[in-house]
Design a protein around this nucleic acid. Sequence first.
RNA 1: GAUUCGUUAGCUCAGUCGGUAGAGCAUAUGCCUUUUAAGCAUAGGGUCCCGGGUUCGAGUCCCGGACGGAUCACCA
Length: 581
Amino acid sequence: MPKFFFHMSMILSEQEQVRRASLHEMQQLGINPYPPEAFEVNTTTETILANFKEGSETFSHVSIAGRIMSRRIMGAASFCELQDATGRIQLYVKRDDICPGEDKTLYNTVFKRLLDIGDIIGVTGFVFVTQMGEISIHINSLKVLSKSLRPLPIVKEKDGQLFDAFTDPEQRYRMRYVDLIVNDQVKNTFLKRTKVINVMRDFFNSKGYLEVETPILQPIPGGAAARPFITHHNALDIPLYLRIANELYLKRLIVGGFDGVYEFAKDFRNEGMDRTHNPEFTVLEIYVAYKDYLWMMDFTEDLLVNVVETVQGNNSVLIDGKEIVFSKPFRRVPILEAIREHTGIDVAGMDEKQLIAVCRQLGIEVDDSMGKGKLIDQIFGEKCEHHYIQPTFITDYPVEMSPLCKRHRSNPELTERFELMINGKEIANAYTELNDPIDQRMRFEEQLRLSERGDSEAMFIDQDFLRALEFGMPPTSGMGIGIDRLVMLITGQTSIQEVLFFPQMRPEKIKKAMSHEMFTEIGVPEEWARQLIQAGYQTIESFKNEKPQVLQQKLNGLRKKNKLDIPAVQLEEIMLWFGNL
RNA sequence: GAUUCGUUAGCUCAGUCGGUAGAGCAUAUGCCUUUUAAGCAUAGGGUCCCGGGUUCGAGUCCCGGACGGAUCACCA
């Protein structure tokens, strides 16, 4: 239980009050609006709509449950739309069919008056086609399964055009449950997300690689360059960090003798939030022993072609009006060549001073904390990255940028690394992993020097990881894919919040509705205290500063408006309350 | 963080020159046995984001603030 108790007198809108009254009336009629027993469902709207043929007996006894999404009441017969997990179907509700006896309460009172849009019901009946040609269920029983106390936004649709759409991103993300109920496409995005992950998992399992779990709480946040979240473990009295990557743990498992390990991991980075960044995000990382980054490029191509073909049904996706085609082989471009291609400058072999000069020449901002690696990264990011729309492997990054990556077999200034760029953004990152423990230690120490220069993202030294490498890690290739960004790409979404069920939001401002007790304490009768809250006096201050005459007018106005069955308030009473302040 | 736009009924949105706050849907009531975003009719529903200021008078003008969107910059 949370430690916080909000003492609030809830101010309900008219519609919420009506729904609570309906709930109460149902209970008076002996109907449990939240029954405990299971309701047997024997089909789905999707199954019916896909398979019903007029005249067939297949759907003559259906039992189905879902949420009421619209109602058209026409007297002794009505139509309403029921939405289940698979879609919507129209119900035809005829009074004498759901109320075969004398008692017509279930139809006249419960269905027509006490049920609302948003309520969850279970029905049985038979499927037929209306005169308008719509496949519908003619129901013969109806059971209330859950009463909804808040009105849903009502979104309507005709020929693909939406009316009164629920589109405010803040509302949609904060109340994703509502978004999922009323915005049909939203569900599809998340179904695709799960499908992407399942296809990847199947692909890895079919190769015999092992899905593993590694620590989220880490004493040293390693494996990437980023600012971590920090927390504290009470029993050990040490700081712990939420992981920014799981790379170093997966490599320990390769040391331990597994041939291939992978993890769909939540990583956490204490950085800015925008349409491509959420503080927690999902990354797939996979490590395979006895392979190199060239092998990993082929593997990544196979993986992504497989994912896109399975999820999309073809080999392309459409995003920002651009068609992106996934077919082997993807283009491969060394980073220095990419820079030469887009700037005309050959930065190979340049030292820090020369690189800074190049950045200045190209109008790229630099600062003192930047080393060679970061400068080159900056040039690539500014001048090249956005050009790579079709899947392209950018390879052979400078050694300073990649402290966990093995030096290039033909040039020790470079590393055996690739990033996969799609639609101008990085989707995957992979190395021939550095397994030389002495080189690894030197690279960490270089990071430490960067850190001392003020690079807050430089890596920490993980002594246990170095110890593991010293026992010997087989040559290994590793690869990571940002799952959220991959899903954005495949679903054509341009913001990460659209592919996360519950993106991080600024805490909601809870409007402090003060309790009416603070007014009763100074002698205001209960009923008037409630009216004061409604009149907008939410603090004693605002109340105290009001003129007694104004208060009297407002309260008696509310008395008339709300048809209160109490005598009008007198000025003397109000003066008495003020006296008690 | 910068720029810019926005915040009005349960929802989607109008609101002119500063002068009694509006529409559609939703809700309530009445009528109605196959309707198609909306069956017909009537009614109720507002802290115009918050706080100051100008003014006889502010949803509207000015200042400050909160929250959100979009764009840009940094990180996956």
